[in-house]
């Protein structure tokens, strides 16, 4: 396999999200149940994520959005129900298998605080590639390309502690996408940003995801951010209440 080809962001001409055939789902969940001690967070949630789709997940605070995402991404193991990624039932796999899956096939983005503060921006972005055994030099080259794509190429040697929140989230997004994941999971990625920075991060995220055909699960309680999605799921009391 040609390394530079897999590492550099590729532009594809085909428009993603052509088919809405349910069999085309990259990820599907059936009857997810999850409780934190005695607090039920999910009470039987089911959903599909289609290939190339940007799916917004909204709902009131405490409704179970984050828990749903953590189960979908294989970070939490549901008490009942299953999560299928293609032909793999990931909710039944071991932690190490799921960890590897997250590293190779998924990207994860949180509100803040996910970059290693001591590493420079380029090292943070190169980290997932280095973990997969890519040589340092080529990992850095790829990381530089991704920083460039998110408009923070000039921050390559800057550490996250010296960046603004918006700059940090762009670097974090670049890191989440550098391994070319099939699915990006983002939990309130703009939650700690002002309106404009949030818009900028979202615009770039959506453009890159569409270019590379990455599906996105976008958790937000902001309708304006949800409007970046192709479809919206509404979570209420641990259940998928509606779709629009």
């Amino acid at each position: 396999m040609n390394e530079s080809q897999t590492l550099a962001p590729h532009h594809s001409d085909q428009t993603p999200h052509e088919s809405s055939n349910p069999n085309d789902a990259v990820l599907s969940a059936r009857g997810l149940v999850y409780s934190f001690g005695r607090t039920p967070a999910l009470r039987g949630a089911s959903m599909n994520l289609e290939r190339g789709e940007i799916l917004a997940v909204t709902g009131p605070s405490g409704s179970g959005k984050s828990t749903l995402m953590l189960c979908l991404a294989g970070i939490l193991q549901p008490d009942a129900g299953e999560v299928a990624f293609g032909s793999r039932v990931i909710s039944e796999e071991s932690e190490s298998a799921r960890s590897q899956l997250r590293r190779k096939e998924f990207g994860v983005l949180f509100q803040f605080g996910q970059l290693v503060p001591e590493l420079t921006a380029i090292e943070n972005v190169a980290l997932p590639l280095m973990l997969d055994g890519v040589k340092r030099a080529s990992a850095r080259t790829a990381a530089a390309t991704w920083l460039e794509r998110f408009g923070v190429g000039d921050l390559a040697e800057v550490r996250p502690t010296e960046m603004s929140g918006g700059q940090g989230q762009r670097v974090a997004t670049a890191r989440a996408l550098v391994a070319e994941p099939k699915i990006l999971f983002a939990d309130e990625p703009t939650g700690a940003l002002d309106a404009l920075s949030g818009e900028q991060v979202m615009t770039q995220l959506v453009r890159v995801a569409r270019d590379s055909g990455t599906s996105v699960v976008l958790i937000t309680h902001d309708a304006r951010i949800a409007a970046y999605g192709d479809r919206e799921l509404i979570v209420r009391d641990g259940l998928i209440e509606g779709e629009s």
Partner: peptide, 22 residues
């Protein structure tokens, strides 16, 4: 209200698509 919300969301999606075009 839920249909109204859906209508609003669709409209917002449209304008968001307009402004994120390259």
């Amino acid at each position: 209200l839920s249909r109204q919300r859906t209508a609003h969301v669709k409209r917002m999606r449209h304008y968001t698509a307009v402004k994120t075009k390259a």
